[in-house]
């Protein structure tokens, strides 16, 4: 009797397992893998209006490699990623560690104010207005202080830097650090205290190792996200001045959804994929943690 019951339960479990995972499998296969595999096929084809596409081998890739705009867009994208990670990645970590020293209610308020959540389009537009050469906030401040005004987004030398700076203020990931820091047991610090550890040592030996997995994951996400940057330059500069802030995804969008050269667009996307994959592999070499939260 008991055995029968057990078998029945195992059967139930197995059935439930499949029923529970089926909807996700449906979505991931139909709207994930199916278009993904075809994406590789599109890159080998030339598209015509109405007629079925024709197979043209690697001609699209050859075209991409001989396109003078592609190296420029890749350089811009690398530049953006490097600037953005270099300038805006570390600050939320420091802030989160410092925030944890405050009283609980202070954390509540400061979390809201430091990691102030703003819709991304709104943030981009607001900063575009701040950068306005005539009426913007920054030039107003410069005038008040008696400095010569700058052209900000219209100056090809600093346009990219201007695009990155909003990231200093609008950082969501800070929350993830706070959530992770809250799980550090207080006893660890007390033990370190008894051993006579100094403040810096405590941060280095207790806090940072605890944060390492989440830093690793957020760094990975930052690399992937920044390499695919589209919205901010598209809204704030439109890729200009000249080609100074045109990123790979912007060029991809222009090729595939404005000029409708699908084959070339898809091959550019695949090259971007290879570059990002290479960066991921490099990142995994230095951070060997499991991706887990």
């Amino acid at each position: 009797m008991k055995k029968v019951e057990k078998v029945k339960r195992a059967k139930h479990k197995k059935r439930a397992a499949w029923i529970f995972s089926l909807p996700a499998l449906f979505f991931v296969i139909v709207f994930g893998w199916y278009p993904l595999v075809l994406g590789f096929r599109v890159s080998l084809e030339e598209y015509h209006f109405i007629l079925p596409p024709t197979y043209i081998g690697l001609a699209n890739f050859r075209e991409i490699f001989s396109d003078p705009l592609v190296p420029i867009t890749f350089r811009n994208t690398f530049y953006y990623t490097a600037l953005s990670i270099g300038l805006t990645f570390i600050i939320p970590i420091i802030i989160s560690i410092l925030l944890m020293e405050m009283k609980k209610n202070t954390i509540r308020i400061m979390m809201l104010l430091w990691f102030i959540p703003m819709a991304s389009m709104a943030g981009n537009i607001i900063w575009k207005w701040f950068y306005n050469s005539y009426y913007g906030l920054f030039n107003t401040i410069l005038v008040y202080l008696g400095f010569p005004t700058l052209r900000w987004l219209d100056d090809p030398r600093i346009a990219m830097l201007c695009l990155v700076l909003p990231g200093l203020i609008m950082f969501g990931p800070g929350l993830m650090y706070i959530a992770s820091l809250q799980s550090v047991p207080n006893e660890f610090y007390e033990a370190a205290e008894l051993e006579g550890a100094r403040l810096g040592q405590k941060i280095w030996h207790i806090t940072l190792p605890r944060l390492r997995p989440i830093i690793s994951m957020l760094l990975l996400l930052a690399i992937i996200g920044n390499m695919q940057i589209f919205e901010r330059p598209y809204v704030m500069t439109g890729g200009g001045p000249g080609m100074a802030t045109t990123t790979v995804v912007m060029y991809f969008y222009q090729l595939s959804f404005q000029s409708l050269i699908f084959g070339k667009g898809a091959s550019l996307a695949i090259i971007l994929f290879c570059v990002i994959l290479a960066l991921i592999i490099i990142q995994r070499k230095y951070f060997k943690e499991n991706i887990d939260v």
Binding site: G32, Y34, V42, S256, A266, A269, I270, L272, F273
Partner: peptide, 8 residues
């Protein structure tokens, strides 16, 4: 990246 599957 999302872009690879975007066209299909």
């Amino acid at each position: 990246p999302y872009q690879v599957s975007m066209i299909p």
